[in-house]
Write a protein that binds this DNA or RNA. Sequence first.
DNA 1: ACCTGAACACCGTTCAAGT
DNA 2: ACCTGAACACCGTTCAAGT
Lengths: 239, 239
Amino acid sequence: MSAHPDAPRSRRERPAKPALTRAGIVTTAVALVRSEGLQRVTMRRLAQELDTGPASLYVYVRNTAELHAAVLDELLGSVDLAPVRATGDWTDRLVQILTSYTAVLFEHPGLAQSALVARPSGERYLDLLEALLALLAAGGVPADRAAWAVDLLLQFATATAAEHAGRGADRPAGEEWDALATALRDVAADTRPHLAAQGTGLLSGAGGARLVWGFRVLINGFLHTPRPDAVAPAADGPA
Amino acid sequence: MSAHPDAPRSRRERPAKPALTRAGIVTTAVALVRSEGLQRVTMRRLAQELDTGPASLYVYVRNTAELHAAVLDELLGSVDLAPVRATGDWTDRLVQILTSYTAVLFEHPGLAQSALVARPSGERYLDLLEALLALLAAGGVPADRAAWAVDLLLQFATATAAEHAGRGADRPAGEEWDALATALRDVAADTRPHLAAQGTGLLSGAGGARLVWGFRVLINGFLHTPRPDAVAPAADGPA
DNA sequence: ACCTGAACACCGTTCAAGT
DNA sequence: ACCTGAACACCGTTCAAGT
């Protein structure tokens, strides 16, 4: 089948096993995430890809969580932040950036799950935070409220993406898995009237429409909801 | 050390290995979650607790995800739904129920994580949905909007609880792990002015206050935000 | 027919020992 | 001093073989 059977390592077919560096590890991990999905990016699989043993990775990466965070930050480089410096209604531009962020996470729901538990803190994530804060400031949102608002917006976007983990490529796409849909179809109208009235309508609506509606709810919400501790915004609050 | 060394199985010290049933498995799993935490409730560990091999569990439980869902539904039995039928402002009562739901999940953040990915569909969860829908109906929220609103409220509560997975008992409690706090302290004011101005204030605020503020934001938000497809509420929407 | 021992195909992380 | 082979302590899930 092949003219060139895999030669032993002595022949220099691969780039002669490049020296391990943190950057190299992360780059390889990103490539692996893109080609095989997050669930294949394990310490052992990654080590194999780098032609070494898993123990060697621990010299550069503290653990799996940190690796995932690094990969996510890399991917966040493709979030479109241009709307910050564009013209037009600031809430529309806010929704655009958040939609772009969500789109990136939608391609890697497993990373969204990680991000929910281990908050990212890389350069690309800081850029995203800065962009969102700039837009909220432009919109006249008080700084103390903006701090909590960005958190809420990103949490919603991240959680929405994370929800899609589990049903990846292989899964039969909502055929058997959606136990909730089945449960809702069989709800007894006498004991749970409101649920019965909603039926599976509870699950209706295209993902995109629900997402944008969610962003709008949050924006309208925080514009109408001052922080409970509304005093002068201090840089360092007590605890 | 002990007067009664563990006798061989022939002596009936244990309840003679009760027959396996789905209910029995779930009950044992719940007990195990309470005593040792979710991360210890693996198919193998659970089988060991039930004095059998892991393969036997698969007769009653499809997989780990389904097991987790069953355990969660059991725990949701302790969510306080009484405020539905109480008096007083409906939004306050809504916040009370949601706070109770969040409190339950806070004790088992790992289950919150599962719930985010595999939507629950058990009896206790349906009760919760019914209660929330009843309250929204009482508040005069249009049914179509209420459907999306409960989703949003529960997603926020669940995601907030899920964020606490990972830092359990063992972790040094935010000493080294919080890389974001460190990153925020070192932000350069010239390149990221808004972030620098916020500083670690971005992370400030007691969890309880932020949670309630979040609920209020969502409530004020959906009260001000009609669904984009606002027509007559149909039981079965298109796709 | 029902149940399960044993195997398959993996994991993350550590550390003693090598270079 | 730096790196890593090998081990430790686990996983979920399947299926051929038993009762």
